[in-house]
Design a binder for these strands. Sequence first.
DNA 1: CTGAAAGCGCTTACAG
DNA 2: CTGAAAGCGCTTACAG
Lengths: 350, 350
Amino acid sequence: LHPPQTSSHRPRLADVAQRAGVSVSTASFVINDVEHARVSDATRARVLAAVEELGYRPNANARGLRTRRTLTVGFVTDEIATSPFAGEKIHGAQDAAWAAAHLLLIANTEARPELERAAVETMVDRQVDGVIVAAMSTREIEDPRHGAEFPCVLLDCFVADDSLPAVLPDEERGGRDAAALLLDAGHRRIAFIDGPRGRYASEARLRGFRAELERAGVGLDPALLSWSTGHPDGGYEHTHALMGLRRPPTAIFCFNDRTAFGAYEAIKERGLRIPQDVSIVGYDDLDLASYAHPALSTIALPQYEMGRLACEQLLAGDVAPGRHLVHCPPVMRDSVAPPRTSRRRPAPPQ
Amino acid sequence: LHPPQTSSHRPRLADVAQRAGVSVSTASFVINDVEHARVSDATRARVLAAVEELGYRPNANARGLRTRRTLTVGFVTDEIATSPFAGEKIHGAQDAAWAAAHLLLIANTEARPELERAAVETMVDRQVDGVIVAAMSTREIEDPRHGAEFPCVLLDCFVADDSLPAVLPDEERGGRDAAALLLDAGHRRIAFIDGPRGRYASEARLRGFRAELERAGVGLDPALLSWSTGHPDGGYEHTHALMGLRRPPTAIFCFNDRTAFGAYEAIKERGLRIPQDVSIVGYDDLDLASYAHPALSTIALPQYEMGRLACEQLLAGDVAPGRHLVHCPPVMRDSVAPPRTSRRRPAPPQ
DNA sequence: CTGAAAGCGCTTACAG
DNA sequence: CTGAAAGCGCTTACAG
């Protein structure tokens, strides 16, 4: 009847079958290495030769229609360009996907719920084998399934009832580790320039940070806690304020590396040195952190690993619902040192 | 016979046809708004109602098999995580794709030719409507078609014979603009800390930079040209070297913003001020550039626009082969000022 | 204005 | 060991 395009067609399975002098069934069996269908070596060789000569490659679309497996996973993200995080998550997910012969279908939603919904729907329409829904900074989202049923894992986000598997960074432990790192160096007066109030990461890191300080019998002086933007300007301003205090901190934990970069500037402007005068710890481990002077000690956010894990779990298909926390490893560089004794001495007992 | 999965199936077109009491043809016509097939309003309403009630959504896979259009474009990139560039390109491409009801299928190749080839092949197997091959930093690549025929546009890369459309930043003009910017401010002794030798961007920016200096009758002092890493450490070291010269430059053009960040550090360490003592111009317009102190003047690399353009051209299908240069707009911030007169005076005529 | 039927390119019980 | 045939879920000339 009507082949929509008669033009220079790719060879089809029928073409290789014909050339090899076998039926399409047999050709299909050898191409797919079907176990239980025993094909003689001679026949197999003829088919393989025909495949080679024709440069035959199966139409993945037709195959997917028949088998209901498309070897494709959907990746919908609320943001893709402003931070390097998205790229790292995608990189990890894509590596896991590729290892299982899958490809990633991407959609960016700008965190707009109606776009997110449309994105998930169009992926399901395309019969993806599963979808990863990712947020760039940990947050709660609506259930992306909206009643439909399909394999889904959440990346850096979660649903209220935890009915879906979610891969999340262990922010609270990260906060604890940051505090421990500074405590271990001997600091007692430690400030925290936190991120935006109410943001999941801000609250979780603070929880861990505060708990660790209290465990050490130090406690968090309310004057040393501030909420910032997560950008360098916030770190810059808050650090100036902090260092202008009558009893300035000897160390500052910054919500993220960008905030720490701002803190660096402020400290240098005041003629102080890092880490001799003030120790700094960041969060994220941006690649720029290792280029700072001195190289920034920080808590790494393992975006690549999280992306990989989410995709592996999705494809393995055996993940339990609920939150799966991923450790954020501290990375020690040169921005932490013991406090100056000269500064510790004058500090009166709390 | 054998429905591979009898489980909770999505409704098919046949289901809506049955429910509406029409044939699948008719149902298909109204769902696809087929022009020449006039369907009575009553019938149309019944079909639409059935679609609504059943929550019917067409199987994109089946549709693609039949129509040979999958509404999917392949995006293969040599790098996705280390710089923010990939994310911006993808963002632009995805926005253009989405606007045309397309989705992006992504593959990352780590710049390994065999992976690149496999990626392109698997995308063609999946019947994508076209593929974008992207590099993160302008470079020549092998023809990704390898004899096959499919719509393809290159993004930040090109093939030797220019037989494919390629969207590229106008690096040479960027170099010229950077020079002009500094020349216009009154500088005559301008250094260039270029990127790695032999890299396309390094060479092209140098070409433009040098040409503009010569046009202004200034010329590029070989002592003021150096090749660096493209990372902050390179900018840091070369700036120290430059400022240690007997006749240091009054302005430095840095290969990129990261290099400029290193230059900032070195200048501040020497007790000099930007822009009063030294003017700095970067390249890329990273988001961090606007947070630097002072905010960095730079030449923007319009990654998003390039991504969008490439995808638009691919989907429009009317692009001529050859290089399509995209302008890199200078963005003036606070790191450029006229040279100190005290420094200009002693400079003897060349 | 509407329907019956072929076919997109595969896979896979089933029969021989 | 191999083949004929149905069917995955659509679209679309063609006939009425």
